[in-house]
Simulated scan of single mutants.
Amino acid sequence: MKGVHFLVAFLFLALASSFASASDPSPLQDFCVALNDTKNAVFVNGKFCKDPKLAKAEDFFFSGLNMPGNTSNQLGSKVTPVNVEQVAGLNTLGISLARIDFAPYGGLNPPHTHPRATEILVVLEGTLYVGFVTSNPDNRLITKVLYPGDVFVFPVGLIHFQFNIGNTNAIAFAGLSSQNPGVITIANAVFGSNPPINPDVLAKAFQLDKNVVKYLQSKFWWDNN
């Protein structure tokens, strides 16, 4: 009888494994509208692949992460990405990298999400106050002050931020679990969408006066990426 139970369990696990291996790949862009006429196709979920025999060292190389980003903007930060757009050899490998520079006290990488990646951050210089917010219904804020050598993880899809609370420049490097993690900066998306979201929607959602919403929509929302 034990042998029968073992066999049933084995078959169940094998069937579950076959289902798992047949699942769809994770999306690598915001959306991919299906087309029957392929001559009008522009994007695929990822990139077309070069013949491996034609690959060269430059396909796997990027130079410049030793150079500081320009933080002279209203956010006081600059993100220098190294994803599949910069390194073609990252295609299908599921990883990318970014350098983040922060101006002295107040440099901010504003609340944002990566819809396709978990982020792991390591601080090289300076002192950063970082955090993320858990999903509904708790919306719990989890924060930490980081110093050189410290590492922090931001789970995939959750709103997170980094803020320089030191009086010197700060530098951090981030690894991301996607060749194209995507970035949704919350303020830019909500108040800077094109075309604008109906102010009535935002006034009710944020419990603000509609004139405040219109004022926020009239501002220039800086993209530090």
Score class of each variant (00 low, 15 high):
residue 88 A to H: 08
residue 210 K to Y: 00
residue 25 P to W: 11
residue 80 T to Q: 15
residue 40 N to F: 11
residue 3 G to E: 15
residue 110 P to R: 11
residue 195 P to R: 01
residue 127 T to A: 09
residue 167 N to A: 05
residue 208 L to G: 02
residue 164 N to D: 11
residue 127 T to R: 14
residue 224 N to D: 14
residue 210 K to H: 02
residue 99 R to Q: 15
residue 191 F to Q: 01
residue 169 N to R: 08
residue 214 K to P: 04
residue 60 F to A: 00
residue 50 K to V: 02
residue 178 S to P: 09
residue 204 K to P: 00
residue 77 S to R: 10
residue 171 I to L: 15
residue 116 R to E: 11
residue 177 S to Q: 12
residue 93 L to E: 12
residue 56 K to Y: 05
residue 131 G to E: 13
residue 2 K to T: 03
residue 202 L to S: 04
residue 194 N to E: 12
residue 44 V to R: 14
residue 152 F to C: 04
residue 1 M to V: 03
residue 211 N to S: 10
residue 137 P to M: 05
residue 38 T to F: 03
residue 192 G to A: 05
residue 163 F to I: 03
residue 64 G to D: 12
residue 49 C to L: 04
residue 28 L to E: 14
residue 109 N to G: 02
residue 149 G to F: 04
residue 186 I to E: 08
residue 108 L to V: 02
residue 22 A to M: 10
residue 161 F to P: 10
residue 124 L to K: 10
residue 121 L to V: 05
residue 109 N to R: 13
residue 218 S to P: 12
residue 73 N to V: 01
residue 157 G to E: 12
residue 156 V to A: 10
residue 210 K to Q: 13
residue 116 R to P: 05
residue 86 Q to Y: 08
residue 181 P to I: 02
residue 138 D to Q: 09
residue 85 E to M: 05
residue 53 K to W: 00
residue 129 Y to P: 00
residue 176 L to R: 01
residue 46 G to Y: 10
residue 57 A to K: 15
residue 107 G to Y: 01
residue 173 F to V: 02
residue 48 F to G: 12
residue 31 F to A: 15
residue 51 D to Y: 04
residue 114 H to I: 07
residue 14 A to F: 06
residue 89 G to I: 01
residue 216 L to I: 07
residue 36 N to W: 11
residue 209 D to Q: 14
residue 23 S to E: 15
residue 129 Y to W: 08
residue 206 F to A: 01
residue 43 F to P: 09
residue 140 R to N: 11
residue 88 A to D: 10
residue 97 L to V: 01
residue 182 G to K: 05
residue 71 T to G: 08
residue 78 K to R: 14
residue 131 G to S: 06
residue 23 S to K: 12
residue 180 N to L: 03
residue 181 P to L: 06
residue 2 K to P: 00
residue 4 V to E: 14
residue 203 A to E: 12
residue 49 C to V: 03
residue 43 F to T: 09
residue 49 C to Q: 15
residue 173 F to N: 07
residue 216 L to R: 12
residue 50 K to I: 03
residue 146 L to M: 13
residue 68 P to T: 08
residue 95 I to P: 06
residue 210 K to L: 01
residue 50 K to H: 02
residue 57 A to N: 11
residue 170 A to P: 03
residue 83 N to F: 09
residue 196 P to Y: 07
residue 144 K to S: 02
residue 21 S to L: 11
residue 34 A to F: 11
residue 28 L to D: 14
residue 195 P to F: 07
residue 123 V to E: 12
residue 199 P to A: 14
residue 44 V to K: 13
